[in-house]
Design a protein around this nucleic acid. Structure first.
Length: 997
RNA sequence: CCGGAUGUGGUGAAAUUGGUAGACACGUCAGACUUAGGAUCUGAUGCCGUAAGGUAUGGGGGUUCGAGUCCCUCCAUCCGGACCA
């Protein structure tokens, strides 16, 4: 009997489904059964894009599936759900283009995803599926939003509290400062509060709500017609699509995540994330401590004004040579002197003409003097105040004190504008380069002279506080998160606007997203919902929530997905508790992960759940990259050996130019290289083009269909198009000319092709669909191969070269159970006997050793997430058992259980073939017995004369004397010594034996 | 520029604590059984060398009886953040 993976996998997938073997139940409190320990394994749920899954997606899913199955065999009640992050921009963009309702395309895409996932044989309990765009789901997203809206962050208790408590406080005590004079507009008494109008009260409360509405500068993306959160903007362009992003003032919803900055930082210490991930998050939060200092401004126009700066280095206060304020700073106008007025205005105009992107790209030193001076409070020096774009209005106070000898940018600025530099760090400063040291002993620093900089900080802050002109201050880079989108395909806000006051919508949630005819934006930068008269008539908020709203709490809904009384029953969320293992890519480091951590903390503060960190352990799976074959073209002669990245080549334009890819390229290659053994293929400079052509996959042909390409993109007629058998150049089709080296030379151009590893993406035409692999090799092979590729955390290019080996292993494993037909000729019926050759004989010690070695090894590898070596463990065991001709039930059955998490279909099938009734999923993981692999002894290294070395097995509890004896008796040592008696034997560090001859 | 990670055969990669470097697999070569091989099995395979032997974990230096592993330094690649005061 052959290993017929197609039938086996179909059979078991159907059986699992039919018998609901993956159904997970919440323990009911009434039943007296002992509650199994729980384990929660979560994958980051996918956005169901139209492209479907590619081989990169399942990497993390397979790992988590193996781990879940393993934990189940280990006796845990495992929650391992899957769902879809189904709200979002691409579906809407697609709707805009085609007029199809996003709900329709989303539904279709989800069906594709699910069938692909099922093909791989994952153990999801689909009964628990969540979709963020499902009204029954977003009902609770809206509800949690209202909790945020109706809460504020109490600075004394450092936690979220219901806003009703704040109102009560205002009504009885008002909001008065603990010390000092009340500031009008900020502080008020209870009497004042009670006399405020409703609008005034609402505005004040809005300043404290955790979800609040305000006007602010936002990242506006014209092409997408919406606002983006900071983490959705990369290098001044949108993360999705790469469109330009500008600053725009709009009314927006925000999450007051900044209030949680400290707790988000502290929380990192108690979770098991990688250092890189923690680093990324704390960089994003960007906590810095320093001081805020007020400097008196001396200008012709104003008196008694002060300039507030933020600095992390108050110790350098005597080194200030100038001040710089942001061009948008509020003082710009009032302090500019009359003779500097024109220069300043010109400069401001210039700055406004430059986009953020330009500013970042070309770092020119620009600036202008305002004519005004600030006074150094300690030595009375007059410090010129400059304006420059390198100071950002949005960070700190938008003004800095410049210390050129200690800060690189200040130094460059000073040099550029010929400002004299005060040296306060002596020999640490060489006159050429700033030195940001904290170790120097201060000089030219008044009362700080002789102090080491590190120690001077506190002294300065104390002095500032005493004078009342400064104080210690902590600053964060993180801003409040923009929480609204001018879009259709998202959760509607359950908010109504009455007389410009935002109020909770009083209807019964969910507030269902209405149908629209058009998905184009509404008036004045509003979303499509503003086009619906009924919606506007009810004065409902026309923005929708961003993509990360639904994903911020989905891990909770899986626990109790059908509850229509609450978002998640408290008993249930207490039982499942935190996610024990969360698997996903690093791309969500500062987005989703921070937001969901914040939401969790809020829910915890409001006592709705019992823990304030959602994910106990996070594993970041690497990306599987695609292998793209790219055609390059170069004018004139080409010298072999020129680097691929050499400057004298460029990529050939491709006719299909997806949005946002500035220099598209042509792909000549696709998936099916399995049967090609030509290694030259992989040498970038030696690729016979015909060979490339031969391997072009069927599915790529339409991509390379030139006629449609030209029709679709007529403007690109000037480009060069290449297909597997011809290329299009200067308006004409030419077939490839003869060549030996892979070069194709036309009149004046040389083409060559190269492989490049890059992110797998539809737009790059390098996508490999798992279904294709499964069709030829089966899901079990696919699963094991993806794991065998290397560590889960590492990114690697997809490459099918090694898949045969894994497939061969499974066939070989199968032959431990069945005698293969004599001649399973290609496609033929075979004709041999189909015999199960498993016997009930007692295993030999050699066979037991193989088994228990495998148990120890594979269990260990699985436990520490080293699935690649785990797969190797199976191969080793199978090879050894084949050599031993071992077909014994007592060896093979435990081995099957070990294999079940990795290759569930074949394990289940063989388990049944052995005559076992129940599913293998509910077996108990075999126990490793040390005796069989001589665990009672340990290998010790032996070095002789401190040079030669070998190892020997010694009893674990061997004494030093015994060791000496054993050493002399040891055959290996005898051989080394060649009869010469050792002078002494040293037992070093309890671990090593050194024999001195 | 800053931060993080990585660097081992022709290839993907192993090497729990410092202890026979290259497990396991791909590929390649040779052989067996075959009408056939894209089935299966056996053997070889880091590099140099007929061999004995030498030499090898990006380069250089250090600690150690012993270093892929620890320390310093330089180089390369990848990822992330970048005017953050």
């Amino acid at each position: 009997m052959e290993y017929n993976f197609r039938d086996i996998e179909k059979k078991w997938q159907a059986w699992w489904k039919e018998n609901k073997v993956y159904s997970v139940s919440n323990p009911s409190t009434s039943s007296g059964h002992p509650v199994k320990p729980k384990f929660y394994v979560l994958d980051m749920f996918p956005y169901p894009s139209g492209a479907g899954l590619h081989v990169g997606h399942p990497l993390g899913y397979i790992a988590s599936d193996i781990y879940s199955r393993y934990k189940r065999l280990k006796g845990f009640n495992v929650l391992h759900p899957m769902g879809f992050d189904s709200f979002g921009l691409p579906a809407e963009q697609y709707a805009l283009d085609t007029g199809q309702h996003p709900a329709e395309t989303t539904k279709k895409n989800i069906a594709t995803f699910k069938s692909q996932l099922d093909n791989i044989g994952f153990c999801y309990d689909w009964e628990r599926e969540v979709q963020t765009s499902d009204p029954e789901y977003y009902r609770w997203t809206q509800w949690i939003f209202l909790q945020l809206f109706n809460s504020y962050f109490c600075h004394t208790e450092k936690k979220a509290l219901p806003i009703s408590l704040l109102i009560k406080k205002y009504e009885t005590k008002g909001a008065m400062p603990k010390t000092g004079e009340p500031i009008p507009g900020k502080h008020f008494t209870a009497e004042q509060w009670n006399s405020f109008s409703e609008k005034e009260k609402a505005d004040i409360l809005m300043r404290r709500r955790l979800a609040y509405c305000g006007y602010g500068e936002v990242n506006w993306c014209e092409a997408l017609g919406t606002v983006l959160a900071n983490d959705e903007v990369v290098n001044g362009v949108s993360e999705r699509g790469g469109y330009p992003v500008v600053k725009k003032t709009l009314r927006q919803w925000y999450l007051r995540i900044t209030e949680y900055a400290d707790r988000l930082l502290e929380g990192l210490e108690k979770v098991d994330f990688s250092d890189a991930m923690k680093e990324m998050q704390s960089n994003w939060i960007g906590k810095s401590s320093g001081a805020e200092i007020d400097f008196l401004v001396k200008s012709e126009k104003i008196k008694d004004k002060s300039l507030r700066v933020y600095t992390t280095r108050p110790d350098t206060i005597f080194g200030i040579d100038f001040m710089v304020i942001a061009p948008e700073h509020e003082l710009v106008e009032s302090i500019t002197t009359s003779d500097q007025k024109t220069a300043v205005e010109e400069y401001i105009t210039y700055v406004k003409s430059r986009s953020e992107r330009e500013r970042m790209a070309e770092k020119k030193i620009t600036g202008v003097f305002t004519g005004a001076y600030a006074i150094n409070p300690f030595d009375g020096r007059e410090i010129p105040i400059w304006i420059s774009e390198y100071v950002l209005a949005g960070y700190g106070t938008g003004a800095i004190m410049a210390v050129p000898c200690g800060d690189e940018r200040d130094h460059k600025f000073a040099k550029h504008f010929n400002i004299s530099i005060t040296n306060i760090i002596g020999e640490y400063y060489n006159g050429e380069e700033a030195n940001p040291t904290k170790e120097a002993v201060l000089q030219n620093s008044g009362f700080l002279n002789g102090l080491v900089m590190k120690g001077a900080m506190d002294v300065v802050i104390a002095a500032l506080e005493e004078k009342g002109i400064g104080k210690r201050k902590v600053n964060y880079k993180m801003r409040d998160a923009a929480f609204s989108r001018q879009r259709y395909w998202g959760e509607p806000f359950p908010i109504v606007w009455k007389d410009e006051i935002a109020k909770e919508w009083t209807g019964k949630l969910p507030l269902v997203l209405p149908d629209v005819e058009k998905y184009s934006p509404g008036p004045d930068g509003q979303g499509p919902l503003a086009n619906i008269p009924e919606w506007v008539a009810q004065e409902l908020e026309t923005n929708t929530m961003p993509g990360y709203a639904g994903s911020s709490w989905y891990f909770l809904r899986y626990m109790d997905p059908h509850n229509d009384q609450t978002f998640c029953d408290r008993n249930v969320s207490d039982y499942w508790n935190q996610v024990d293992l969360y698997i996903g890519g690093t791309e969500h480091a500062v987005g989703h992960l921070l937001y969901s951590r914040m939401w969790t903390k809020v829910l915890y503060d409001l006592d709705l759940i019992g823990y304030d960190e959602p994910y106990k352990r996070l594993v970041n799976q690497g990306m599987i990259q695609g292998l793209s074959q790219i055609a390059y073209v170069k004018k004139g002669d080409f010298e072999e050996g020129t680097s691929r990245s050499g400057r004298n080549t460029f990529r050939v334009p491709m006719f299909s130019n997806p949005a946002g890819t500035p220099q598209p390229k042509l792909q000549l290659y696709s998936a099916d290289l399995i049967n090609d053994s030509n290694r030259d293929y992989y040498k970038p400079f030696n690729i016979p083009i015909e060979l490339v052509a031969r391997n072009i996959h069927e599915s790529s042909k339409n991509v390379l269909d030139i006629s449609s390409g030209i029709q679709k993109y007529p403007q690109r007629l000037d480009a060069i198009y290449i297909t597997f058998d011809a290329f299009f150049y200067e308006g004409e089709w030419k077939t490839w000319s003869e060549d030996e080296q892979g070069w194709v030379i036309t009149e004046e151009r040389t083409f060559y092709t190269a492989n490049e590893v890059e992110k797998m993406s539809k737009s790059k035409y390098n996508v490999v669909n798992p279904n294709d692999i499964i069709l030829s090799y089966g899901a079990d092979t696919f699963r094991m191969y993806e794991m065998f590729l290397g560590p889960v955390e590492m990114s690697k290019p997809w490459d099918t070269k090694g898949i045969e080996g894994v497939h061969r292993f499974l066939k070989k494993f199968w032959r431990l159970f069945f005698k293969e037909s004599n001649h399973p000729s290609f496609g033929g019926a075979g004709g041999g006997s189909e015999t199960l050759i498993v016997t009930n004989d007692e295993p030999t010690s050699a066979e037991l050793k193989v088994l228990h070695h495998a148990i120890r090894r594979i269990e260990n590898d699985t436990e520490r997430f080293s699935f690649n070596t785990g797969v190797s463990g199976f191969m080793i065991a199978t090879n050894e058992l084949t050599d031993l001709k071992c077909h014994k039930r007592k060896i093979l059955e435990p081995l099957l259980i070990l294999l079940a998490p990795y290759a569930p279909h074949i394990a289940e099938e063989l388990w049944q073939q052995l005559g076992n009734e129940k599913t293998i999923l509910d077996q108990t993981y075999p126990v490793f017995i040390a005796n069989y692999v001589a665990e009672s002894s340990k290998e010790y290294p032996v070095s002789i004369n401190g040079k030669l070395r070998t190892t020997m097995n010694l009893a674990l509890d061997a004494t030093e004397e015994e060791v000496n004896e054993l050493t002399l008796e040891n055959e290996v040592v005898k051989k080394w010594l060649e009869g010469k008696p050792p002078k002494k034997i040293i037992f070093v560090k309890n671990k090593m034996i050194n024999v001195v001859v």
